[in-house]
């Protein structure tokens, strides 16, 4: 007779696994990666490859030789961190700078806290901010998209950088916009200087919709960020359109789409409840705009996400799920 298995219920499990969730995130990033490679060429591929390889190798080495516990690279979370980090960097970033970013993202932000699930800050964003503060020259040297086989590299400012620069020189927002030739169409599709993650809003949104359809993430954090950015910038823009950029501009530029769809929605570093997530999103949207409008950096998405990451344990303490039969 067969030997029977005896274990507590439930006896079935869904086909969900961490690996499947991470694989879905990688798939969701593919359209944006494809667009950036087409526009920035092999340099972008190099940045992506160095970043992913570094993240995976660093995690493998740390788990094997420092923590001496089973490897976790199979869950693909290091691949996701590597891709996101690369998408936050200019395509001109030297390989050793990319490696430093990966070392900080995985080695410091993720593994010192205990690995996947234990980190307080989003590793990719922490890696990017580390590089931005440590190597500002490499991190602000953007290249205009020139196509896969283009030769002449055109060095240019990102729209947000141009606005910040122009305002300091006393120009008004509409003048800078027309001087730079920025159109919403180019922001939506792909034609502006920036990192891979800034280049095409549409490609990122396709990935975001894929994640929603696959039920990997829920839309509340992202929508809350967008809503806050739209509302707050609308108020400022109506007050003084020559000094403040309008809602659509703020939604389509910088790391707004990448950050709100792929980084702020990171399970580990975002609140567990929907209400908490909405507050988290309001915080990110508000802080981002304050940095864009009044800070010394042209873009504030990364800082905003990191700051709100720090509040997540507190938010989780405040907001709990609605329990059945309890007021």
């Amino acid at each position: 007779m067969n030997k029977l298995l005896v274990s507590p219920s439930p006896h079935l499990h869904s086909d969900l696994s961490t690996k499947r969730l991470m694989r879905d995130v990688v798939i969701a990033l593919l359209p944006a990666i494809a667009v950036s490679v087409v526009f920035y060429g092999w340099k972008e591929l190099l940045v992506l490859a160095v970043s992913v390889l570094s993240c995976v190798c660093i995690e493998y080495l740390i788990t094997k030789y420092m923590l001496k516990r089973p490897g976790t690279v199979g869950d693909l979370s290091a691949v996701v961190t590597g891709l996101l980090l690369a998408m936050n960097l200019p395509s001109t970033t030297p390989w050793w700078v990319v490696f430093m970013g990966a070392l900080f993202a995985i080695g410091v932000t993720k593994m010192t806290f205990g690995g996947l699930g234990q980190n307080v800050f989003n590793p990719a964003i922490a890696g990017r901010v580390f590089l931005l503060v440590s190597f500002p020259t490499y991190m602000t040297r953007w290249e205009m998209p020139k196509g896969l086989f283009g030769v002449d590299a055109v060095s240019g400012a990102t729209p947000l950088g141009a606005i910040k620069e122009g305002l300091l020189q006393g120009a008004s927002v509409p003048d800078i916009m027309s001087a730079g030739g920025y159109s919403y169409g180019s922001m939506l599709f792909a034609n502006l200087g920036g990192s891979a993650g800034e280049i095409s809003a549409i490609a990122l949104l396709i990935g975001f919709v894929y994640l929603l359809v696959r039920k990997v993430i829920k839309p509340h954090i992202t929508l809350s960020i967008w809503g806050t950015v739209a509302l707050v910038s609308l108020i400022f823009w109506l007050c003084d359109p020559s000094r403040f950029t309008n809602p659509l501009f703020n939604l389509l530029t910088g790391g707004m789409i990448l950050g709100s769809c792929f980084m702020a929605t990171d399970y580990v570093t975002s609140p567990m409840t929907e209400k908490g997530g909405i507050l988290f999103g309001v915080g990110i949207g508000f802080i981002t705009l304050m940095i864009r409008y009044f800070g010394s950096y042209p873009e504030g998405m990364s800082f905003a996400i990191l700051i709100m990451n720090a509040f997540v344990p507190l938010i989780n303490n405040w907001f709990h799920h609605k329990k059945y039969g309890r007021a």
Partner: peptide
């Protein structure tokens, strides 16, 4: 068994609203 990634899927599934 792997590590909790704080996805909150257990709380979303709990019909008693527990965590």
């Amino acid at each position: 068994e792997t590590h909790c990634i704080r996805c909150g899927k257990c709380s979303d599934a709990c019909p008693m609203g527990l965590e």
